[in-house]
Every structure is written in C-alpha cells, then in structure tokens.
Design a protein around this nucleic acid. Structure first.
Lengths: 232, 232
DNA sequence: CGCAGGGTTGATAGCCTTCAAGGTCTGTGG
DNA sequence: CCACAGACCTTGAAGGCTATCAACCCTGCG
C-alpha cells in the first residue's frame, strides 16, 4: 500500500465520495492525538452486532465489511469499506451491524466519547460528522432501490461500478475484489451461485474479465446501462 | 384528529421512536417562530426528487410517503410518515426522494438555512438533529435486511407490525392503512398482487382481519414470529 | 347508471434459489 | 518438490416463490 496523507484520505472517505472537496479544512487533525493504531487479521471481528458503540475507526489499509444477521443465519452485508473510510459513527449507543476484517487491516481508533465531547465545542467538527452520516444515509437509500427493485444483473453491474469508482484509478480497468463471492451475494441480496452465474454471463458477453481476486472492465458503458445509471 | 401538543409530538417523531424520552427539553421551540403552516391535498407532491433541499417539514396531521423512481418507472417508497414525524433533513443539498401526500396533510415548514444557522450556535439543537438522522439511518438499515433477505410474508408481517407500533395505541388491534396496496408493494419490493395474496392468506389463517382502510390484528404473536422479530 | 380506479383472485411464466457435483486455488506437511 | 486437504468457486438440474398477464369485483362519484 502506498503511504497516504491526511489530505488524501479526506477526499477518499465517505464524505469525500459525495462532495468534491472537504467542507472543513481538516477536522481529523483535532482527533488525531486521541487515536491509537491497531492491526486486525483477515476474517477477525472488529466489533460485534449489539456491542456498545465506544469507538469509531478510520481505515489505514485493507478492507472491512459491516454485517447484520437474522436469527436463522440469514446475512446482510451493509457495506464494504476501504482505506480512508470512517466507520462506527452510524449508531447511537449500540452497533447495529458488526464490523469484520475482509483482509488484514490497519486501523486507527478514536474514542467516541472524546469525539462527541470535542464536537460540542467545535461546530466545524460537528458539521463534518453530520455530513458523514448524511452521506451514509444517501448510500443506504441507493441500496434500498437496488435491493428492492433491481434484477441480479443490475445488482452486479451497480456493485462492480461502485467498486470501480472507489478502488480503481479513473482510467484503469482492473478492479480489486478482496471480498468473497458469498460476501458479494449477501451484500446484494442474492446467492453465491447467482453471483457466479451473472459474472460468467458478463464474461461471455465480453463486458469484463474475471480473475480470482478481481475483475477487469472492458465495457464500462455496457455496465452503466445494465445498472440503470446513465451518468458516469 | 385530536389536537396535539409539542411535548407529545416529540415522542412520536422519528427520534421518539428509538429513545424513550427526548434528549433535549424542546429543541422544536427554537424553530417554531420560523415555521409556517400549510395544507396539501391527497396525492399531491410536497417536493420532488432532485429538488433543492430548502425546507424541512413536520407533520401536523395526515400521512406522507417518500418516493424514489428509476428511469424506467420502477418505484421505491422509502418510508411512510405520520403526525409528529419530521422529514426533509436527510439530504445534503438535493432531495434524494420525493415527498408526496398520501392523505390530505397539514404541515409545518421550516427553512433549512435557518435551522442550520441556529444549530451552529445551539449545540443542543445540533445534537437533536443528528439524533434524528441516526434514527433514520437505523431504520434504513432495518429495511435493507427486509428488502434483501426476507420473504413476502415476512415483509408484510414486519410492515404491519411497524404500522401498528406507530399508529395504534398499545392495546388496540385496529391499524389504519391510509396508503394504497401499490404503495405498500413499492415499499416492500413486491407487486400489488403479492401484497393482496399475502394479506388474504393471513386473513384465512385468522391472524388478522381486513377492511378497505386498515387491518385488525388478532394474533400479534404470530406476526412477530413471521417477521423474525421475537421482541414485542 | 355508467365509469374509473383500486382491489382481489386465478393461471401461467420466469427468475432466482436450492440441491448437487465437480473444479480450482492455496497453504501445509511430509 | 509434491501430495493432500479444505475452502472457495463454478456449473448443472430441478423446484419454488414471486412476477406477469388477465379477468372480475367493489366502491365512490359525476
């Protein structure tokens, strides 16, 4: 992984995804002295569903998923998070989703009590935190449309485009997919088999190439059409 | 409709749904002088998808739905809102969903610019607004699980329980359903026909009774089991 | 009374799941 | 270096759940 500066991280994070430049100079600097760095191994839990929401986190490197379980084991993956993303701020007192490491991850952890206390006096920080939450809400609304009204192909197309937008350079065609097919299925409300079949279908079409760890986009336009997302 | 006091509205609203009592004495009082009251007729639009988010709103009476459309007409109903609920705060600059009147509604409207300016100095208000957003995010997460992983029966059971929780008295069995079957279908990611069939099925089971404008819960426990929600 | 819109029910079709089997990759230990 | 185990991925066949298409009913209204 390349070394990442603060300024860069800000524009990659959930806030940065939506707004072209940060609303506030650098609210993270206020928190930095209260953070601690830690590493978590692949497939280990960062926090559990139902745990008290004592910390929030920033990803330095690696990939994290948020997961929610029904009693009978049905699983919903809320989102995949990458370097620069911030998570653990979306809950009031109890974590609604668990957070798990998809790959080995390096994290920076901040006590929420401190964050909230700081936000009381620093309105710029408070404003920034609220913007993060609104962006997450926007993403959740997009996913409601996807889960409720899109077909399997459309779901995969939307997913791959989102991954491309976040993890690849604008011109590049290679997109890393560090998560398993099962994770993707549980993210899109499908089964593993359907995910495989749709990917195979898109490969036969010549829309993309498949390798174990990622995909290669040959025809982005075609994916956009499939995803019902004209603007890209 | 009975007349509603401020204090009562607070605990019915989106914030009140989660926390037993308001975090702040009465942040609405700060805004009240900037509000204006208006009435909107059944099936009329309050604001459109893509409109600039200039106002936020509080429902005095009636029912409102939020709606998002795909280009080909596929529709997703985000949520149904009732007296006391506040909406229009979930967007950054542009409304992500449209808001439409399900019944005739009486609304109180507040300029967002004013709300945000006030929040800069009144941290209690800012905190309260953030709590509202977090509760909406929590609801969106629940709906992701519902849309992605639940069956038609489970979706209906969850929906009816939520309506019962919000619109009925604790002991009452009658639940008003002011919205159309199509609205319910688009809220749950189903078709009208499936909604009708599932309701008919539950009626034959003796779980509930059906009238044009609502339902009557006979066996709440059964619904909870169907909805995969043990605690109620 | 006739119309229009929503609601309900039935028959059929299709998408996706389920169940099953085989393939591929990776890490481990001899 | 090779063999093997296990996890994940892929592909095939069959079935089920829900959508689609169609018809009819019911209610409110001009």
């Amino acid at each position: 992984m390349q070394s990442i500066t603060h300024a860069a991280q800000q524009t990659i994070g959930p806030a940065g995804r939506m707004t072209a430049r940060p609303v506030v100079p650098d609210p993270l600097d206020l928190l930095e002295q209260f953070g601690s760095t830690l590493t978590i191994g692949r497939e280990h839990e960062i926090y559990g569903q139902g745990d008290p929401a004592r910390y929030c986190w920033r990803i330095l490197s690696g990939c994290v998923r948020t997961v929610k379980l029904l009693e009978d084991g049905r699983r919903q993956v809320g989102e995949f998070l990458f370097a620069g993303d911030i998570f653990g701020l979306d809950d009031l007192a109890i974590h609604d989703f668990a957070a798990e490491a998809v790959t080995d991850v390096k994290l920076r952890r901040y006590p929420r009590r401190t964050v909230e206390a700081l936000a009381e006096s620093r309105t710029a920080l408070a404003h920034w935190l609220h913007t993060l939450t609104l962006n997450n809400l926007h993403a959740a609304h997009e996913r409601m449309m996807l889960l409720g009204r899109k077909t399997a192909i459309e779901k995969l197309a939307s997913f791959l485009l989102e991954m491309a937008r976040r993890s690849a350079m604008p011109g590049r065609v290679m997109v890393d997919l560090p998560m398993s097919r099962t994770d993707i299925a549980d993210h899109l409300g499908l089964t593993v088999e359907t995910v495989c079949r749709v990917l195979a279908h898109l490969k036969r079409d010549g829309t993309l190439g498949i390798s174990r760890t990622g995909i290669e986009l040959y025809d982005r336009r075609c994916l956009c059409d499939l995803a019902c997302e004209p603007r890209h």
